[in-house]
Amino acid sequence: MQTVDYEALGQRLRQARKQAHMSQKEVAGHLGVTASALSQYESGKRKIGALALERLARLYSVPLSSLFSEEGGEERPDWERALLGETENMSPEGRKGVAKLVRRVRQFRELHELAGVETPREPHHPFEPLPERNYPGEEVELFAEEARDFFDLGSAPLSHVKGFLEQFGAYVFGIPLGDTDKDISGLFFRHPELGPVVAVNSDQYYGRRPFTLGHELAHVLFHHDRPAILCRSQDKPPSERFADSFSARFLVPRKALLERLRTMDVEKVHNPEQVVHLSRYFGVSYLAMYHRLRTEGKTNLSAGHYENVRPVSLARRLGYAPSEQEYGKKDWPLEDQLPQRYIELAHKAWAEGAISKRRAAEVLGISHYQLEDRVGEEAAPMESPETYHGLQ
């Protein structure tokens, strides 16, 4: 039986931690030990158990085998270094989320091989990358209109932004990335084989998701020359302000907004009920709709009125059916956490015997009972339409 060189193991643990931009105190908190104990692990003065090693490998987003390799494992690929290099100022929760995304993307790449499916080619970029500068609203409006024209969207509401992004060739993950006030609302990076990858912070309010996706779409379309962009709510560079402005105008086109106001026989919005109707029509959050109206000078509501409104409850009173996710009562659906292709490949790999049921459930992040339920629902025959026996 081969003995473990704990001093060499400790050195590799220290190197992996530093590459993940995490302090000993942060890692110790995740591991449930003292910083002193972690320091002893890294110096080789204290033996570390197999379970703790596995947890550290997952936290640092490195293969467990690399911690035992004399070479320290393969060097991280460029996309991982670009992504992890942007996390230095994030909270421990945010860095842990990015590490989880790295694992998910690795699994996604592996699923292509297991299912015998080639990785897709990076999509054709219809627009030249934009330089880093401030763009006035009217200019961003033109970019949004040009993008809608290119994809032949007209001015109709975009009901499924994630599906649109994935149809274009980007892959969207929903990953917990910490408090959006301290960390990020989403991110974008380019994978050398998979192409553009987007992550939305699933710790944020569910209703904010469409706007974040529109924001990341701006990066996919106009900043595809950059290896990675982490989208923070504070200290925004021009590219982030552009993405915010683009998302608002792409999801709620000026022409469509004015047409909808005419249909409602409204010149200016003067009550929260009207904001709710518009937000539900365009599929954006109440706050996003309010700010869009302010940009167009189409509301008399003051900025402070939002504190006295409960948009989800108000929407329900107006006859809409908000999801349980909007109330914060349920986790995001699996289809919002993973790309559709990822889910399909996991099912295919399991169905063809390339991976076990347990492994398929693990890569999907669900229990094997939930996996069986999902497959059973997909395989269930369609019900025949009910016969109407009303009065003749």
Score class of each variant (00 low, 15 high):
H21E: 10
K18D: 11
A8I: 06
A37H: 07
L31H: 09
S39I: 03
V4A: 11
H21P: 03
V27M: 10
L31A: 14
V27T: 12
L13D: 01
R12E: 10
V27W: 00
G29F: 03
M22V: 06
D5L: 03
K18N: 14
A35H: 06
K25W: 05
A16R: 10
T3M: 15
L38Q: 00
G32N: 04
G10R: 04
A16N: 08
Y6W: 12
Q19N: 15
V27R: 04
K25Y: 10
Q19V: 06
V27A: 07
A8W: 08
L13S: 08
S39V: 03
T3Y: 12
M22C: 00
T34A: 12
Q19K: 13
G10W: 01
A28L: 07
Q19M: 13
G10M: 04
Q15S: 14
H21R: 15
S39Q: 10
A35C: 01
Q11C: 06
R14T: 01
H21Q: 13
Q15A: 14
R12H: 07
V4F: 12
Q24M: 14
T34M: 09
H30D: 12
T3D: 14
L9F: 10
A16T: 10
E26H: 05
H30N: 10
K25P: 01
V33A: 07
S36M: 05
S39N: 15
V4T: 14
Q15F: 12
A16I: 09
A8R: 11
L38R: 00
V27K: 04
G29S: 15
E7K: 14
S23N: 02
Q40E: 11
V33G: 00
K18S: 13
G29P: 00
A16K: 01
T34P: 02
L9A: 08
R12L: 12
R17G: 06
L31D: 04
G29A: 13
A16W: 02
L9M: 08
M22T: 02
T34Q: 08
H21S: 11
G29W: 03
H30C: 14
R17P: 05
V33Y: 04
L9D: 00
G29Y: 02
H30L: 12
E26D: 14
S23T: 15
R17N: 07
S36H: 05
V27L: 15
Q40P: 06
K18C: 09
L9H: 08
V27C: 12
G32S: 07
Q11T: 10
Q24T: 10
G29D: 13
V27D: 00
A20F: 03
S23K: 05
K25M: 06
E26C: 07
Q15M: 11
Q24V: 07
V27I: 14
Q40H: 13
E7G: 04
D5F: 07
L31P: 04
T34L: 04
Q19H: 10
R17T: 03
G32W: 01
L31I: 15
A37G: 04
R12D: 09
